[in-house]
Amino acid sequence: MNWHSVWALCKKDIADMSRNGIVVFLFLIPISLSWVYGTLLTSGGLKPPSVILFDEGTSAFADFVKHSGIFEIVAPPASWAEAQELVRRGEASGAILLPAGFDAALNSQHSPEIKLYLDASKRVASAVIQGGLPGLLRAYVGQDLPASIKTQQVRGIMARYADVPTWITIAILLAGINMVPTLLVEEKDKKTLDAILVTMTSKSEIVLGKCLMGFAMALIMALVILVLNQGFIGNLSSLFAVLALGAVAFVFTGLLIGSLAKNVQIGSMISSLVLLPLVIGSTMADISPAIGIVSRFLPSFYLLDGIERAMFLGSPLPALWLHLLVLALLGGLSFVGSVLVLRGRET
């Protein structure tokens, strides 16, 4: 292995890619989005769910709800049917119907019925409305909770860096699966690879040189996202081990795509086909148990989950053995695959 050639390839790719507008754009996207979203979440907090409060009478409870600040109250239409229509059209997350004589019924302990009409597709908003309304009702009638609830927050997840693992995963996947194949496919497309192959440079050196460049690109993106969002928390040695191994694994996967693709168009198509399930599968693993099981078949899940565990649970390295093993296996197999594909190319 001639490291001088490996370094020369890496330096050349850095110079070449830094003048490629598309690559620079792809490099900046996850970094800037992570910063913008992190800043907006921190400064503005979470948006309250929008609710139509339809009062058939003139209940004081309606004013109590309005002033609680838990919901964003949408001006009610003329009828309950119209309120339901507005929810169906997505103009409000839910509607609350207070029947006529609500206060009087409460005072006479007749247990009046409140109707809730919710847009189930807005999962977070629905949960907030369903959970928030009983609490407001108890507070309105001055009823104590049957038990006191003492809240203690663990894992210290602040809005600023709650999404950092997702952004880092997206950045590493973009660098590995989308940008790195370009490094190799362009060489094939423009026949510059032929010029390299008639020098003493071996295929392994070419693959390693490009990996070094891709690795640097993925790691710089991850580090900038961590710095911008103050994400250096948890077990840092575990965090960097997962980041480094994840970057290597997906950069080698990108190189395998680049080796297989005959030209830039085919390379972009394969990259997109691989990138989409990896991003969606890993970021949506928490939505349902079934999706969680399917996600475990995707290597990107182990990258995202590993980062989350290292950051938010402070997991030590031995606790992440499965994550590291999956990423190492992916990297190893992809590297061998890239070299074999390139080797087969000369005949």
Binding site: K12, R19, D194
Partner: peptide, 16 residues
């Protein structure tokens, strides 16, 4: 180490 090759295509790094 003994040969130099000029290819049919102008295979240069155009951005460099």
């Amino acid at each position: 180490g003994q040969i130099g090759v000029v290819f049919e295509h102008q295979n240069l790094y155009e951005r460099l």
